[in-house]
């Protein structure tokens, strides 16, 4: 048990580092796409350290104080509920804690906690950002749920291990290929989850500062920063396990998550922003339609 916790802790550290690195890489790639040099890939580590070692910080109250912890623990918890390598004693994290349904609800915990803290700051931009984020969530959850239910019904299991096992035996067994419409729906909703560009109205630095974390500074921000990084990694891992057949070792995990990571990155750099109702309605039409195609197929075939 203790060994398991230790491994999980190490994985978590690795996850945070990987998330920060991915953030740096994304900044670099974005810069190269804009024909400039961009910061080093380690820039996020530097930023994190700077924020972490700031001298002063302000707090607006108890929830404000606790929210970064919510965010970090929520992100870390989500990360730890997803196995990095299914079946591996070292890298399957705490996936015994719950199945996919548990995971999908646990994902919200960190966001909700952070939303509450942000709201306590008393800055109007924070709750505006939060309400936008939640509304957008209502948008992208629909296609995502559709595809997840397709997988659960198809594989007759709700555990990530089970879903990964169902995809073993070659690349064509990946759900990306066996359920292409559901996968497409889920990958479109991933754009919403990552608030990448067409669906970026949540943070919208141009109009509402940076939305929820407007009032956060210093160490608080560093916690949120790391929580956000590891949360992103958790989502990549989740998608890897759901659609790309999981990973048989750490290298594959890196490769696949990196591939998933590139998808929202490329989208984000070439699109303008949608208004909120546009993005919600977008999610409720095309990706939902795609998801329904596979759902209907499953329903009829069963």
């Amino acid at each position: 048990m203790w060994a398991k916790i230790l491994y999980a802790f190490l994985t978590l550290i690795g996850g945070i580092a990987y998330g920060l690195l991915l953030g740096g890489i994304s900044r670099k790639i974005t810069a190269r796409m804009q024909n400039r040099r961009g910061p080093t890939v380690w820039q996020n580590f530097i930023d994190l350290w700077k924020l972490f070692r700031k001298k002063t910080a302000i707090s607006h109250g108890v929830m404000f104080y606790l929210a970064p912890m919510f965010r970090l623990v929520g992100g870390a918890g989500t990360f730890l509920l997803v196995p990095v390598v299914v079946g591996s004693p070292y890298l399957s994290n705490f996936s015994f804690g719950g199945d996919l349904i548990v995971l999908m609800y646990f994902m919200v915990l960190g966001c909700l906690g952070m939303a509450l803290g942000a709201a306590e700051s008393g800055h109007p931009h924070a709750p505006i950002g939060v309400t936008r984020g939640l509304s957008q969530m209502a948008g992208y959850e629909l296609p995502f749920i559709l595809s997840v239910i397709v997988l659960m019904v198809a594989d007759k299991t709700a555990t990530l291990e089970g879903i990964v096992r169902a995809q073993q035996g070659g690349i064509l067994h990946w759900h990306l290929f066996t359920h292409p419409f559901a996968a497409a729906a889920a990958f479109i909703s991933l754009l919403g989850m990552m608030t990448s560009y067409p669906f970026q109205v949540v943070l919208a630095p141009q109009e509402i500062a940076v939305g929820p974390p407007t009032e956060y500074s210093s160490t608080f921000l560093s916690y949120m920063f790391s929580g956000r990084s590891v949360f992103a990694v958790a989502k990549y891992l989740l998608f890897m396990n759901l659609f790309l057949g999981g990973a048989s070792n750490l290298l594959w995990a890196f490769v696949k998550t990196f591939a998933i990571f590139l998808w929202p990155l490329f989208i984000t750099n070439v699109f303008p922003r949608l208004r909120l109702e546009q993005s919600v309605l977008f999610f409720w039409t095309w990706p939902t339609f795609l998801g329904l195609v596979d759902l209907l197929r499953i329903y009829l075939v069963r």
Binding site: M69, F70, L72, G122, E215, S218, T219, F220
Partner: peptide, 24 residues
């Protein structure tokens, strides 16, 4: 949560509780 909280309390910058309208 408690671990994170303890770590935070030990390492964080000087946190000042400010007034409710002290916002940017």
């Amino acid at each position: 949560f408690i671990l994170a909280l303890i770590f935070f309390a030990l390492t964080s910058a000087r946190v000042k509780l400010v007034g409710q309208m002290d916002v940017g």
